[in-house]
């Protein structure tokens, strides 16, 4: 049995001042997962996370797996899907509501 191909990963975090969920676009943090950039180099991503936390822009940086659907990253796990959208029980709130 061959090992399945690992899924692509992107970085997310919480904005230090607002707590908002943000994604690394390759050059900056963005609120929109569609603008997130795939991690090419794990060590570089780790280093980036440390630098960005030290720069007091974000907290709790971590990578997670996504599937690209029509060129847009969709989180593989439910947890990050909820983060990218908002509470499933309040569709009027969060990113899913255009906030």
């Amino acid at each position: 049995m061959t090992k399945p191909e690992p899924l692509p990963r992107i970085l997310n975090a919480n904005d230090l001042a607002t707590g908002d969920v943000v994604y690394w676009s390759g050059s900056k943090w963005t609120r929109h997962i569609a603008e997130a950039e795939m991690i090419a180099d794990n060590d570089a991503a780790d280093a980036l996370g440390k630098t960005e936390m030290a720069a007091r822009r974000v907290v709790d940086v971590y990578p997670f797996e996504v599937n690209f659907e029509n060129g847009v990253p969709v989180p593989a796990r439910y947890r990050e899907r909820v983060r990218s959208l908002g509470p499933s029980v309040r569709l009027d709130l969060g990113k899913q509501a255009g906030e």
């Binding site: 707590g19 908002d20 969920v21 909820v82 983060r83 509470p87």
Partner: peptide, 17 residues
């Protein structure tokens, strides 16, 4: 900072503080 904000009831959750 984390233990200090926690002792003031401030958590970081999935969407925000």
């Amino acid at each position: 900072f984390k233990p200090l904000r926690l002792m003031n009831g401030l958590y970081l959750q999935l969407h925000a503080y």
